Simulated assay, not measured.
Amino acid sequence: MFFSIIIPLYNRPQEINELLFTLTKQTYLQFEVLVIEDGSKNDAKAIVESYANKLDVKYYFKENAGQGFARNFGFERAKGDYFVIFDSDCLIPSNYLEIVKNYLYEHDLDAYGGPDAAHESFTPVQKAISYSMTSPFTTGGIRGNKKHVGRFHPRSFNMGVSRQAWEKVGGFILTRLGEDIEYSIRIHENGFKIGLIPDAKVYHKRRTSFGQFYKQLHFFGRARINIYKHFPKELKLIHFFPAVATVGMITTLLMNIFYPPLAYVLDFLVILYFMLIFFHSWSVNKSLKVAFLSIISSFIQLTAYGLGFIQDLFKRVVFKQQ
């Protein structure tokens, strides 16, 4: 089995350097790497070309059109049996392709996704963000969990598609706003089999500050409504949880200001919820600092996603704006 690893890139030369270095350590060597520079001003051509004697790597520069269409550009030039998509801010364990190859031979998936985790080199903020995106106490727990809700939809930071599926389904038709979920839905609808490979994890840096994380999650909330506009049946009750939690926390704040006696129960529930997050993060990360920061990152995850979801729910569904 030959893999084509496709990496869209936009103004992140240092990240691609770190990702390519981890790919030089792979135990399974039947793969090529295609780096698609999507109109970056700060390009990584010299960095990518410095790996020419270590990897079968190709560098392409195209006009900016977004990550989904950059991946399509790579699909069209890849020669692998299987296309593997990574975000540029990932670090790849040395046995990743070995795990994927063995699993695909046993389970015959047409597309797959894998979970993410925090690397030991990550900052405390990055570890807290990683926790909030993978914890069972936040909506992030469904992203790489065996017990996911409904059909499994791979996320494009760690996703694979067979050449056969791509040749029938085509590539991404959205370049942003939930493009990976939309793509996996079409793969499902064309009769192909998609599954989670539980051990095919990557170390996903995501964002390096809470401000950047807020913007990303607000975007994710809007993306869920974008998916709903294409596939109404894919909007599940669990997708409303961040919005409901956001409204609940705003209500709790208002009650504490205007009528404190009615806020006691809500205060208790909010405190209990974030205590569960604190102690669970402490047990997972073995760090009090990361546990405290996990309260902040989980709060941001819920409210940013919730506000983005509510914003486009009213804008695009209630008021039917484009």
Rank of each mutant, 00 (worst) to 15 (best):
D87P: 02
Q26E: 09
F192W: 02
I5V: 13
Y96C: 12
F69M: 01
I129R: 00
G144F: 02
K215W: 15
K289Y: 10
A304G: 15
L217M: 11
Q311S: 12
Y112L: 04
R143K: 08
A44D: 14
D81M: 02
S94E: 13
P242W: 12
G80H: 05
S297D: 10
Y96G: 06
Q126L: 12
V84R: 00
F86V: 11
T303W: 01
L262I: 05
I257Q: 02
H119D: 15
K25S: 15
F231D: 10
I85N: 03
L237H: 02
I277V: 14
F314V: 13
D199A: 04
G306Y: 07
F309S: 10
I295T: 09
P8W: 00
F213V: 01
L253G: 08
Y214F: 14
A263S: 14
R186H: 12
V35P: 01
T246Y: 04
L196R: 00
G114M: 11
N42H: 11
R186C: 15
N42L: 11
R77Y: 10
C90L: 03
K54F: 09
M275N: 12
R224K: 11
R71M: 07
L23A: 06
Y214D: 11
I7Y: 10
L97M: 02
G141C: 09
V125H: 12
G211N: 13
F73M: 10
V161S: 08
R12C: 10
A70I: 04
F3M: 01
S135N: 14
F152V: 02
A117W: 04
V33C: 02
L23Q: 09
P232H: 03
